[in-house]
């Protein structure tokens, strides 16, 4: 059992200390992922590298949320928000509070995403908001 999350039915709940980090290129292809991300999403790092980041996107997430994310980071700003992700099997999911920021890696724009645990109230609010999108 991982020490960075607990399981409640189909939901994986991040621990307070969990810190998920990943980096993508300008097209959203994963170039690196840390242990916590691999652990909660049930992937090995080599399975994630080279794949689009939406490999963990849960179908419940509205497209508008990601449009807002991309529109924000492409202008060089930080995007923060709540995201529902799925695990590799697709049978489980986990919510994160994501902070995404564009960086320069060897002259090319990359994006780094850091995720932490959202509260139960924040998840409820996000679910309600996303239903309206």
């Amino acid at each position: 059992m991982s020490n960075i999350f607990t399981t409640n039915g189909a939901e994986r709940i991040l621990s307070d200390k969990a810190f998920l980090v990943s980096e993508t290129d300008e097209k959203g292809i994963i170039v690196f992922a840390n242990d916590d991300f691999c652990s909660i999403a049930d992937y090995r790092v080599e399975e994630l590298i080279g794949k689009p980041h939406n490999i963990v996107r849960h179908p419940d997430m509205p497209r508008a949320a990601f449009k807002d994310l991309w529109d924000t980071v492409k202008t060089g700003k930080t995007w923060t928000g709540f995201v529902k992700n799925k695990t590799s099997s697709g049978n489980q999911y986990y919510w994160v509070y994501a902070t995404v920021y564009p960086i320069m890696r060897e002259g090319r724009r990359h994006y780094i995403s850091c995720r932490r645990k959202p509260t139960a109230d924040e998840i409820e609010s996000a679910i309600a908001l996303y239903k309206t999108l």
Binding site: V21, I103, M104, R116
Partner: peptide, 28 residues
């Protein structure tokens, strides 16, 4: 701070695989 910590964590993680990349985060 999150982004900085994330970039640092990512860079250290990369270093474990032998990639000695510096952290460039002047803007953030």
């Amino acid at each position: 701070n999150y982004i900085q910590a994330g970039m640092l964590a990512m860079s250290v993680f990369r270093a474990k695989t032998g990639e000695l990349s510096n952290v460039s985060m002047a803007n953030c």
